[in-house]
Amino acid sequence: MFDSLAEMIALAETQKQPLHQIVIAREAALTDRPPETIWALMCKRLEVMRRSTEEGVSRPVHSLSGISGGGGAWKLWQQLENGYQPITGPILSRAIARAMAVNEVNAGMGCIVATPTAGSAGILPGVLLTLQEASGFSDEQIINALFTASGVGAVIARRASISGAAGGCQAETGSAAAMAAAAAVELLGGTPHQSGQAVAITLKNMLGLVCDPVAGLVEVPCVKRNAAGAAQCFIAVDLALAGIESVIPPDEVIDAMASIGRRMDARFKETAEGGLAATPTGRRLAQIIWDGKPSAELKA
């Protein structure tokens, strides 16, 4: 779509248009689809995103394997509904719950939208749907924000990677959080430049994060990393909107992520051979999964 964020941001600045319009125009040119079709496709995705967040907070959702226990999002949501005052505040706490909700639905082989991947699918809906709830943004504004997010993700996919197997968790939850940060900045009235800064700040804070899923399943630690991604996103949004700049420009941060991903040992790239997957508990759980024993034994 774009080779660099610099190119995307410069276009927005010279044409005096928000990032989402630049992305929609490029998508239309690239795919030869009319803007109405493109809009309808994104509309459908927002619906699925909303359904997956609601599903995960309204009842305890359990994964097929059972290793992550499940129901985390529902537990936190219950706390919030019962008047618990979260230390992370009313907005971040609900974003975290929604982010975990989507990931738990995913682990239960439920229907989600990969944003950019299934393992990191909670962050973007968690952030955007909570901002919508808090500030009353229209669906139209949220759909625009999704286009901005997609433009950022496309640049990361082109220059680096959005695959844990190729670039570690930084490439999945890092990319998702960076996409959400750019979108949130735009939604909250920031400039295209500030969106770029939010991408840089988010990714910098998530560089080097390894992909070390227990038994190779998208559960442990993925569910909680979605919560962490939402938090990193909000940090970057507040910094960028305050006019704080990243010393390293966004495209250079993306390139650094690519370089770290290439040099990352294969044990830390979704192979379930290192990190948390290689801990005694991680190995014990993997053994149970791979031996095909019933999930009831996991609780022992």
Binding site: M1, V23, I24, E27, L30, T31, I38, L41, M42, K44, R45, V48, S63, L64, V105, N106, A107, G108, M109, G110, C111, I112, V113, A114, T115, P116, T117, A118, G119, A121, L124, L146, F147, A149, S150, G151, G153, A154, A157, R158, R159, A160, S161, I162, S163, G164, A165, A166, G167, M179, L217, V218, E219, A258, G261, R262
Partner: peptide, 23 residues
Amino acid sequence: MSSKRLVSAFDIIGPIMVGPSSS
């Protein structure tokens, strides 16, 4: 491993899928 192909908005926001893993 960078992807040199043209990436669409719906490669990034999508697919709509049954979990657990996009790849």
